[in-house]
């Protein structure tokens, strides 16, 4: 999941990134641990029936009047095969 902001002046600011995955493989599909090696499961995935919440606090250059926050959620299967699950955005204005 990538979170970015585009300011009213056009600057793109990376706010944060979060990865959800199995412990056995990295995002490129390379095995980190073989099936015979996984003895402890560290679950870095999204659990069923639950909301996983992420919070970010981002500061912007002085003078910024508004930003468009965009969240891009990508399902990354293997290199060269990924699909956009959600792309949502929200405009935030900074009142004086």
């Amino acid at each position: 999941m990538d979170v970015t902001a585009r300011t009213d002046t056009g600057a793109v600011i990376n706010i944060g990134k979060k990865e959800y995955r199995e412990i056995g493989m990295d995002l490129d599909g390379n095995e980190r641990l073989g099936a015979w090696q996984i003895k402890e499961i560290i679950d870095l995935s999204l659990p069923p029936g639950k909301t996983t919440e992420e919070r970010f606090v981002a500061e912007f250059p002085e003078g910024t009047k508004s930003v468009d926050i965009e969240v891009l959620l990508t399902y990354y299967l293997t290199p060269g095969y990924q699909s956009v699950v959600h792309r949502v955005s929200k405009k935030v204005a900074f009142e004086r």
Partner: peptide, 14 residues
Amino acid sequence: KGVPAAIITIGLFN
């Protein structure tokens, strides 16, 4: 200073 900032909360429901 009044630096502009945003508090962003994202919920992913499985």
